[in-house]
Design a protein around this nucleic acid. Structure first.
Length: 843
DNA sequence: TAATTCGCTAGACCGA
DNA sequence: TCGGTCTAGCGAA
């Protein structure tokens, strides 16, 4: 038996000789192979009473399953695990299809079953704690001939091209595979060749996948490890030869090139930008129409439903869709972009301007063969692939770390939700501790949980007005630290010890064990400690060695994502480990801590201006920074271990405003730090559904007020804006209001301006749907027309056609009036420049 | 198949 | 035409 090491890329299974076998795609130094582990069977758990273990075992063993093909279970084993005092029996099957058929029948027979819906290859990765994207070590037993069909790793997946369902892929790997066993995770360096590709296609009357020919394709390859082996290529046909462009004879040959490039045996990863929905489906469809094969690594790319989206899965080789990466970063707040097209992302993430070439221009350039236009198109096509690859290169280290934590492939982690990541981690840790995972909730349970929301954070109403010298304190990782300090976990909830109830009760009335660590709290405790060490080391390296260690950064970042999602997961109705009591206790503790801190601050002579969830805004008055530090230290001494109040910063000035309905507005304020940097929170300035004119005017006003202390100048500035507005001089781009179409047009009860604009655009033939970002303008329109009547998508509006009255009354004025009001300026003062006061008015 | 709740504001909608 | 209520979107934490 020989030991081998390799980088693990994929886990799937093949049915060979009537049994399902785990197959892993592994490699090193850009050479890959499939290895097969025959020692691991699909399984589920069935519960039985302590007295009936033998009886149930025999019953299960003797039962004949199957509609057509009859089969028995492979084995039934008693485990040490229990659920509600019942014993879990591990039931193994020969094939995945057997498990799928049997689990239906088991329910009908009245058995309680667990972990019956964990996909086989996922199960394998979790149980073995393997880390795709990292290395593995295994024993090689020998080689075996395989004659198998591939079955997807999840049972619900269906293949289709342009919406039509196809037969299940019957392709297989035929040949020899290494048989292995005793696989274990191993630390090693992330490596591998990645190739990005991007298609340019012809536009027809109506867009549909595969409707028109592919016109051009670009490839960019590079090594994700240390080596740099850059390779670039752009190919077209039936057009002019320009620098950087290779010509072939036909579209068919384009597909040949795609086949050749994607099947370079050195490829470990194929990168696209929205290849999940476009490039693969398109190539697949064109290949079918042209009657040529399109396979990657021996298999047709498989388009599967993943949530509300499509995903394109390849066998072995990892398809990394950089668009999915970007969407994940947007969801977790790492980036905040209005549009997620590759041009905006290039600008936002890398600060690199990328020119957009529109579909019509693409077709035109190709058809005309105009050299200038074509060169522009070649450059555009190439940059698409370059940018997609750059995104993958930049962020894959993060997903490799997530893959290590959750034991999922990069294909999965780059597409998973944070709740899925938390759940994968919990499944893995639960298995290690011999804990059976709770079942996924049934739809009625989800409904019930949803209908019963958890009380959240405490927000203190601010004191409106302009304030000087503000100290902002906040709790470090408040929710995770509460989980850890109070040992909050579904398995420590309301334990039987009276002293735990005495010592560790939440303000909510629930209590948590103080004697044994819970699943949640233990894992989170470990993660938070690791993160602290990693952060420290990252900072040290940066400071002492001048090295920006991206791997260290990615490691702590992955932990941060998981830590921050833990509370949300507990309150997520679809979670296996959903716990209303736990989530509720966390927020109850949090409300308690923040309110206590506010009270302590007031007792120490601070005026508390505001507080939200985990933060505290103190007016310093006569107090010094040292006083704030002393106060923080005092609070920390009284906090349980693991919790910490930190000083976020000191601010020279800040403003809170009154609401329209009276009272001070929460979640909106502006601060200026000691260096003069502004922090604008919640105001229109940070909201994309306000036009740029209103937002920029507001920013300028805040600047003049906070920095210069000059409301007179601010008023003058606003008057200038109003003048331009009334004179019709404001550019279209400053008046665009952006809103996301969150549902299908027909599902709206209330037709707001953006929906009305979308409706009109659809009538003109524009394709819009859920997820479309709408940019609209309120045009002059007819008198007495509603705002919706006057709303039109930007692209249909001429420069200068805008409703000045609307933009004055509903955009610019509302954005600044509340701020100016705090300085004693009325609407009239603003419009006509009446008041001439300086700082004296408010100081 | 989607992490949570709190909060603000606009504009449609609807009945008096 | 007015004012209250509801729908919708987005941001803070």
């Amino acid at each position: 038996m020989a030991k081998e090491k390799a980088l693990l890329l994929d886990a799937t299974y093949f049915d060979t000789n009537g049994e399902s076998r785990i197959s892993l795609f592994v490699g090193k130094e850009n050479e890959y192979q499939w290895i097969c582990d025959k020692t691991f069977r699909p399984y589920l758990y069935v519960l039985t009473g302590k007295e009936e273990i033998q009886k149930t075992t025999t019953e299960l063993k003797n039962f004949t399953f199957g509609d057509f093909e009859k089969f028995n279970v492979l084995s039934v084993t008693e485990t040490k695990m229990q659920v509600n005092g019942k014993i879990a029996l591990k039931v193994e099957f020969k094939r995945v299809t057997h498990l799928v058929q049997a689990r239906k029948l088991l329910s009908e027979l009245g058995f309680e079953k667990y972990e019956y819906d964990v996909p086989y290859s996922k199960r394998y990765l979790l149980d073995k704690r393997l880390q795709p994207g990292n290395w593995v070590e295994f024993d090689v037993l020998g080689e075996e001939e395989i004659k198998g069909e591939v079955i997807e790793t999840t049972s619900k997946e269906k293949t289709f091209t342009s919406g039509e369902e196809e037969e299940e892929n019957a392709a297989g790997i035929v040949g020899k595979t290494k048989l292995i066993q005793n696989i274990t995770p191993l630390d090693g360096e992330f490596e591998g060749r990645a190739i990005a590709f991007d298609l340019e296609t012809k536009v027809g009357k109506k867009f549909a996948i595969g409707a028109e020919p592919i016109l051009m394709v670009s490839f960019v390859a590079d090594d994700l490890g240390q080596k740099h082996t850059k390779y670039e290529k752009v190919i077209s046909y039936n057009t002019t030869k320009v620098p950087g462009l290779e010509l072939v004879d036909s579209e068919k040959e384009i597909i040949d090139e795609i086949n050749t490039e994607l099947n370079n045996p050195k490829n470990g990863y194929i990168v696209t930008y929205n290849g999940d929905n476009f490039d693969f489906a398109y190539t697949k469809d064109r290949a079918r129409k042209l009657k040529v094969d399109f396979k990657v690594n021996g298999f047709e790319p498989k388009i599967v439903r993943k949530g509300m989206d499509n995903a394109t899965r390849l066998q072995g080789i990892q398809h990394i869709d950089s668009f999915q990466i970007i969407k994940f970063l947007q969801r977790t707040g790492a980036i905040n972009a209005v549009k997620l097209d590759i041009e905006s992302v290039s600008e936002k993430v890398f600060g690199v301007y990328k020119e957009k070439v529109f579909p019509k221009e693409i077709t035109e350039a190709w058809e005309s063969g105009d050299k200038k236009q074509l060169e522009r198109l070649v450059d555009y096509n190439l940059k698409d692939s370059q940018t997609a690859l750059r995104i993958a290169k930049e962020f894959l280290p993060l997903f490799v770390e997530i893959s290590k934590l959750t034991s999922q492939t990069l294909y999965e982690t780059t597409r998973n939700s944070t709740s899925q990541m938390v759940e994968d981690l919990l499944m893995k840790e639960a298995h290690l501790r011999e804990i059976i995972a709770p079942n996924k909730p049934k739809e009625n349970q989800v409904q019930e949980r949803t209908a019963n929301p958890i009380k959240g954070a405490f927000v203190k109403e601010p004191i409106a007005g302009l304030h000087e010298a503000i100290a902002v304190l906040d709790f470090a990782s408040l929710y995770p630290s509460i989980i850890i300090s109070h040992n909050i976990s579904p398995d420590t909830l309301n334990c039987s010890h009276p002293e735990c109830k005495e010592k560790n009760s939440s303000p909510d009335g629930t209590w948590f064990c103080t004697k044994e660590k819970g699943l949640f709290s233990e894992i989170l405790g470990r993660l938070i400690k690791q993160r602290l060490i990693l952060k420290k080391e990252y900072k040290r390296k940066k400071k002492e060695e001048g090295i920006d260690d991206k791997i260290l950064f990615a490691k702590q970042w992955a932990l941060k994502i998981i830590l921050n999602s833990a509370y949300g997961y507990l309150g997520y109705p679809r979670a296996r480990w959903y716990s209303r009591e736990c989530a509720s206790a966390i927020t109850a503790f949090a409300r308690g801590y923040i309110q206590e801190t506010i009270a302590k601050a007031e007792n120490s002579g601070f005026k508390v201006l505001y507080g939200d969830t985990d933060s505290n805004f103190l007016q310093m008055g006569n107090k010094t920074k040292k006083d704030v530090e002393d106060f923080t230290e005092k609070v920390n001494k009284e906090l349980p271990e693991g919790m910490e109040l930190e000083i976020d910063g000191f601010y020279k000035r800040g403003i809170f405003v009154t609401k329209k309905e009276g009272g001070a507005a929460k979640k909106r304020y502006a601060l200026m730090d000691e260096k003069g940097n502004l922090k604008i929170v919640g105001f229109e300035y940070v909201r994309r559904d306000w036009c740029l004119l209103a937002r920029e005017t507001q920013k300028k006003v805040i600047e003049l007020v906070l920095k210069e202390g000059n409301p007179t100048e601010a008023a003058k500035f606003v008057q200038g804006v109003i003048k331009e507005l009334k004179e019709g001089k404001v550019a279209k781009k400053d008046l665009v209001i952006m809103t996301l179409l969150q549902r299908d047009i027909k599902d709206y009860d209330s037709i707001g301006p953006h929906v009305a604009a979308a409706e009109k655009a659809i009538k003109r033939g524009k394709e819009l749907g859920v997820g479309s970002m709408l940019s609209f303008i309120v045009t002059k329109g007819k008198e007495k027309a509603s705002i919706s009547d006057k709303a039109e998508l930007e692209e249909y509006v001429e420069e200068g056609n805008y409703d000045a009255e609307y933009y004055l009354e509903n955009q610019v004025l509302p954005a600044v009036i509340k701020i100016m009001a705090e300085l004693g300026y009325s609407r009239e003062d603003l419009l006509h420049g009446g008041k001439q006061t300086g700082l004296s008015a408010w100081s």
